[in-house]
Design a protein around this nucleic acid. Structure first.
Lengths: 335, 335
DNA sequence: GTGAAAGCGCTAACAT
DNA sequence: ATGTTAGCGCTTTCAC
């Protein structure tokens, strides 16, 4: 193992100089900086993470807590995790992967052991038991998702209320009068994860403003659930011509079922999805959608948490503005 | 921050005693052990990870490298990652998440910085540029997937050749004579990730043995690709009555397309999927499938790598035996 | 069965 | 602009 002392010797300088060259915490003459950098490269030196953490009280690690039993669409979770990791690297940080399984005790363990300087939590619940802990320990943390009381916390999420409104507006603009919102499984609503309710709120509100008659139905995973939900919707309201779908895994089944039941998209029914762009693009027809900006959420969470860890202030609430992309699945309403 | 010294004082023993109580590396009297443990709990002590790593040369961290541009089905990657994390915890280890983006340099960085004691690599390519590095540094590592030359490496994977054979056998047993294998996108074959080729090899071999006439077609993501592939298959070989599908994301589209084209499953065509069980269960009809044992792979990788890190020997090649579960999508062949 | 003490490799005062 | 040095909190001989 190459140590800093060895680099120092090789470059003919003192250990502290090497340390300062690396951290940039004090000015170094061109000359020595170059010599030191050459030595580092030549010896293939990498600072010992533990030693560094011990001496500086900063581990250069961000802990990321991913959901175990996930309400989110798994690819979205993965995309956020990857965005967090690549963004963290730009801040010279690494990412420690934790699952929600360990619960609040993981938070204690990580903060007390100095393993991570900051944490990012996904799948926050409205009344999340880890939040009090975060508050009291003053851990540098960012939440992806919104708890019931976000005061004093740093949160990042898509603005789902605006998303609901945007979808309602788009359908209303196209002249639809009767629409339905197909959400995630009922269990998600019961668990109060937040995002489903918020979309519903925004959608309901704007439906009211625009005079849309609407129905809201949760929908489980799998083909059966999707086709069941769909047929019940049309039984109840045969006049429905617009569908907003916030359920990525049901999407292919829903579209298949529409096709099969002879309802053409968008001629007979318009579909607006709330999903990642690639899902929208891989469907047939390509879906008009409000995209779930997974990358952006991961990136922002890291930026915020890095600010906090550095003692800088950070925005409490970052609500990303939804963007609707019109593709082939939405068209003019009846008459 | 609570330190070991504080615990020692609180318990009225020396620091080393506390250390030994924790590590169990020497025998301690019931009495003092209890006192120390009570102090630890009472003070909420957690050892400082960096200090521990510095003093002991072991970080208690496993690095997990996940694919960025993923050939694997994303939920499978995620499931493996989660299995790795939860299994690691059972060995009192944490998991550092790396992406393949950083390439071989990540391996150097991690091993040299002492950040991790061991690594697990996913999505290994046949000629993976990280493998020479692993070999020469002697890093404790496990690969999920199989490189071209696995000699001297520790690898875990599903036995895809056996999987191909198993699928062929099942269809042959049912009396099918003309079958097709629908694989992942062509790009996956070009990238030589291995698993697709291996399934094909096994399938081809057993098709030969059982006298099955067969066709092999890659299939891209999305609805268009799926329905295109399917119709070309049936144009070319109208007599096909059995389909083996190794492409999770095409599955719903494929099934939708079959339904729509009036081919009943399993009456007109039998479908055998190679996919995680939950995908098989959420399809309609529920799919006869060879399951991709994601959890098992993650678990085994950790076990192997922990053995290596402890200086114990580990199996070089762990090929998990595939298991076929008969569900509703496969039935008797023609006549 | 327990204690004392020498580091592990690095950072950050404190010097100059 | 650079060097000296005292720890950071833990593990692990060595000693009893």
């Amino acid at each position: 193992m190459v140590t800093l002392a060895q680099v120092a010797q090789h470059a003919g300088v003192s250990p502290s100089t090497v340390s300062y060259v690396i951290s940039g915490k004090r000015s170094i003459s061109q000359d020595t900086r170059l010599r030191v950098e050459r030595s580092i490269a030549e010896l293939g030196y990498h600072p010992h993470a533990g030693a560094r953490a011990l001496a500086s009280n900063r581990s250069h690690v961000i802990a990321l807590v991913v959901p175990l039993r996930t309400d989110m669409f798994v690819p979205v979770v993965m995309e956020i995790a990857i965005a967090v990791t690549t963004t963290a690297r730009r801040y010279a940080h690494d990412v420690l992967l934790l699952t929600s399984e360990e619960g609040p005790s993981a938070i204690k363990r990580i903060t007390n052991s100095g393993l991570a300087d900051a944490m990012i939590l996904m799948d926050v619940e409205l009344e999340d038991e880890r939040i009090p802990l975060l508050r009291q320990t003053g851990t540098a943390a960012a939440l992806i998702g919104l708890p019931a009381d976000p005061a004093g916390l740093t949160c990042v999420d898509l603005d789902f209320e605006a998303t609901g409104r945007l979808a309602a507006d788009h359908l209303a603009d196209l002249g639809h009068r009767e629409v339905a919102l197909i959400g995630p499984a009922e269990s998600v609503y019961r668990r109060h994860t937040g995002f489903a309710e918020r979309t519903l709120t925004g959608f309901r509100q704007q439906a009211g403003v625009r005079g849309l008659r609407f129905l809201h139905r949760p929908c489980g995973d799998g083909h059966e659930a999707a086709s069941g939900t769909l047929s019940r919707i049309f039984e109840e309201r045969p006049g429905i011509t617009g569908l907003v779908v916030q359920n990525e895994s049901a999407l292919p089944h829903l579209l298949g079922q529409l096709r099969q039941s002879g309802r053409a998209v968008p001629e007979d029914v318009s579909v607006v999805a709330i999903c990642p762009d690639d899902v929208a693009l891989h469907s047939a027809p390509r879906l008009t959608s409000v995209s779930v900006p997974a990358k952006e959420m991961g990136r922002r969470a890291v930026e915020l948490v890095m600010a906090l860890a550095a003692g800088r202030p950070a925005e409490e609430l970052t609500l990303l503005t939804p963007a609707l992309t019109i593709r082939e699945s939405s068209g003019p309403g009846p008459r």
